[in-house]
Computed example of a mutant assay.
Amino acid sequence: MVSHSIFLDMEQGDLGQEYLVHTVLESIPWNQEGLIAAIAQDAQSKEVLMLAWVNREALMETLSTRRVCYWSRSRQQLWRKGESSGHIQTLIEARLDCDGDALLLLVQQQGPACHTHRPNCFYIGLDTEQATILTEPMR
C-alpha cells in the first residue's frame, strides 16, 4: 500500500506550493475497484449537479481533454458525460480533497445534468416522514 503522507505534507503546504501530479495520483486511496468519488458542481452557480465515480484513466482523460469522463460502474467502462444525451460537462477546475479520497469537478454543464432531464441529480428531498420530488424535468 502506498503511503498517504503526501496529503499530510500538503496540510502544511504554503499558498502556491506545487506537487507533481504523478506523486499525488500514486497516493490517492483508490477503493477496491480503483475508484474515487467525484462531485460535479456548476462552476458559475455553485449548484451541486451530481456524484459519480472516476478511475485513474477517467481522471487523466478529464484533465487532458477538459471534457468530463467518469467510470460507469453499471457498464464497467469509461463514460464521457453527454456522449449519448449531448449534455456534456466541460471541466473548469478539478480539486482533490484534503485526504485524497474525493474529487470536486467545477464544470460548465450543457443542458440538464441528470438522466431524468432534471437540472441536477439531487431532486429528492427527504425528511422523517416522506421523500418529495423537488424539481421538474427540463424539456
Rank of each mutant, 00 (worst) to 15 (best):
M1L: 07
V2T: 15
S3A: 13
S3I: 03
I6C: 08
D9Q: 12
M10F: 09
G13D: 05
D14M: 12
Q17L: 02
E18Q: 15
E18L: 12
Y19C: 04
L20W: 01
V21F: 13
V21E: 10
V21I: 14
H22I: 04
S27V: 05
P29M: 03
W30F: 14
N31F: 01
N31E: 05
N31W: 02
E33S: 14
E33L: 13
G34T: 07
G34K: 11
L35W: 11
L35C: 07
L35T: 05
A37D: 07
A38C: 13
A40W: 01
Q41Y: 04
D42G: 11
A43P: 00
Q44N: 14
Q44S: 13
S45A: 06
S45H: 04
L49E: 02
M50W: 01
L51V: 15
A52W: 06
A52G: 13
W53Q: 05
R56S: 02
L59V: 02
M60H: 01
T62F: 03
T62E: 07
S64M: 05
R66W: 00
Q76H: 11
Q76L: 11
K81V: 01
G86K: 12
I88P: 00
T90E: 09
L91K: 10
L91W: 03
R95W: 06
R95M: 04
D99T: 09
D99S: 10
A102E: 05
A102V: 04
L103N: 03
L104D: 03
Q108K: 15
Q109I: 08
Q109T: 03
G111A: 04
P112S: 12
A113V: 04
C114G: 02
T116A: 06
T116K: 08
R118I: 00
P119S: 13
C121K: 12
Y123C: 04
Y123I: 02
Y123D: 01
L126K: 14
L126G: 00
D127T: 12
D127F: 10
E129R: 15
Q130S: 13
Q130Y: 03
A131T: 10
L134I: 03
E136P: 00
P137R: 05
